[in-house]
Amino acid sequence: MTGASGRRRVTSADVAREAGVSRATVSYVLNDTPRQKIPEVTRQRVWGAAARLGYAPSAAARSLRTGRSHIVLGLLPDWPIEHVLGRLVQQLTNAFAEHELTFLVHSSARHARPLREIWKALTPAAVLALDEFPEAEAGAMRAAGVEVVMAVHGSVRGPHRPPLVPEEPIGAAQARYMVQAHRRLGYAYPDLTRLGVLAQPRLDGVRKVCAELGLREPDVRTIPFGPDGGVEAVKAWLGADPPVTGICAFNDEVALAVLVALRSLGLRAPHDLAVIGVDDIPGAALAQPPLTTIVRDTDTVARSLARRIVDALDRKQAPADPIRDPLSVEVRVSA
C-alpha cells in the first residue's frame, strides 16, 4: 500500500467545466472578488460544482493571490507535551482559525528535522516560538519572507526583553495563598533542566512574596521523576530548622510526586506538609488527597497571542505590556 491515493487533485478548471462557466468566473466566485458582477444563480452553480467535486483551493495558489501565507508555524521546545501544553496548542489552533490562519506545530525534540528545513519548506507568514531561539535564525527567517517572528519566553532580539507571558505571577500566586497558613515555604523544582525557562521565574515569584513579607527564602529541592523521587526532599523539608510546612510545586506533576513521597513515609497533606501545584491537570482532583492548584486561563492566553501575531502582520503597533494571564486558585484538600 502506498501513501498516495492515486486520485488527481481537483482543479478550478474541473469546477469550471462542471458549472459550465469560465475559469475566471470560478476564480471570481470562490475568491469573492470585489467589483465583479456575477449573477447569484451563477454563483450558486459554481459553489455547487465545487462542493460536488470536493474542490479545495491550493494553499500555494492562495498565497500567491493574497501575497501572504496563511500559515503560522509554532515552535515547541523539547518539553514534555503533557495536558496543559496540549491544551494550549489546541486553543492556539482555534484562535488562529478565527483569523483564517492555520497553526502548524513543529517540536524540537531529538531526531526532529532541523528547524531551518521546516520554515524554508513552509515559508509561513509568522513564527511563534514558545521558547527563545537564536537571533541569527530569526534574521534568516525574515530575510526569506517570514513577516513576523515572535517568542513567548525569552527573546529573538536579545536577552533583556521580558517574556510575552510571564511565569513569575504563578509562583507569586502560589506563595500568597500558602503564606496565609504557612510561614516557612519550600519549592519543588522539576528535574528537567530544559524546563528552567518556566521553573526559574516561578521560583522567583515565590521568593519575591517571601521577601515582601519578611519570610525566609524558600527551601528549594529538586524532585526527580519517579515513584520515590520526592522522598529525600520531603525528609529535608521536615528536618529543616524551622521545618518547612508548605510546598509550592513547579506544576501538578511535581506536586503529585511530593504527595506520593508523603504517603510512602506514612505522612499526609496538609497535616504534615501542605502542597500546591500549577495547571489543574485532570489527575489533580483525583489525587490522594485532592490537589490544590493554580488554574491558568490558557484560552485567554492563546487568543491574546493570536491577536499579537495578527496585529503584527497588519503592521499595527504592539502593546508594550506583557499578556495578562488570569490566575485563580482551585482550593482542594492538599493545602
Rank of each mutant, 00 (worst) to 15 (best):
R116E: 10
I81P: 00
E40W: 09
V278Q: 09
A302Q: 00
T293K: 07
K316T: 09
P322R: 05
S328Y: 08
R116A: 09
A112Q: 11
A97H: 00
A138W: 08
D321I: 10
D78Q: 13
V295H: 05
T298Q: 01
A129D: 04
V310L: 04
F103Y: 02
D204L: 14
V260I: 12
Q317E: 13
P270H: 10
I118F: 03
V146D: 05
L238T: 14
L215P: 02
E98N: 00
R110H: 13
A249P: 03
V206H: 05
P243K: 09
T11C: 05
G239Y: 12
T193P: 12
L101D: 00
L92I: 01
T300N: 03
D241N: 15
V10L: 08
I309P: 01
R202T: 07
R7M: 13
V46T: 08
T102I: 11
Y177R: 07
D272P: 04
R110D: 12
V329N: 03
L101W: 01
I81H: 02
V84W: 14
A125Q: 01
V333E: 13
P243G: 10
R307C: 01
H182D: 07
A51T: 11
R35L: 10
L313R: 03
S12V: 13
T11I: 08
T222P: 07
R308P: 00
I294V: 15
R184W: 10
A129S: 15
A24M: 14
V148Q: 06
P114T: 10
H160Y: 15
D204Y: 14
A240F: 13
P163W: 09
G3H: 15
Q44T: 10
S264T: 13
V127G: 01
E137D: 14
G205I: 11
A306G: 01
G214P: 05
R176Y: 11
Y55V: 07
L267H: 07
E137S: 12
T33V: 14
G226I: 10
S5F: 11
A261Y: 10
A4I: 15
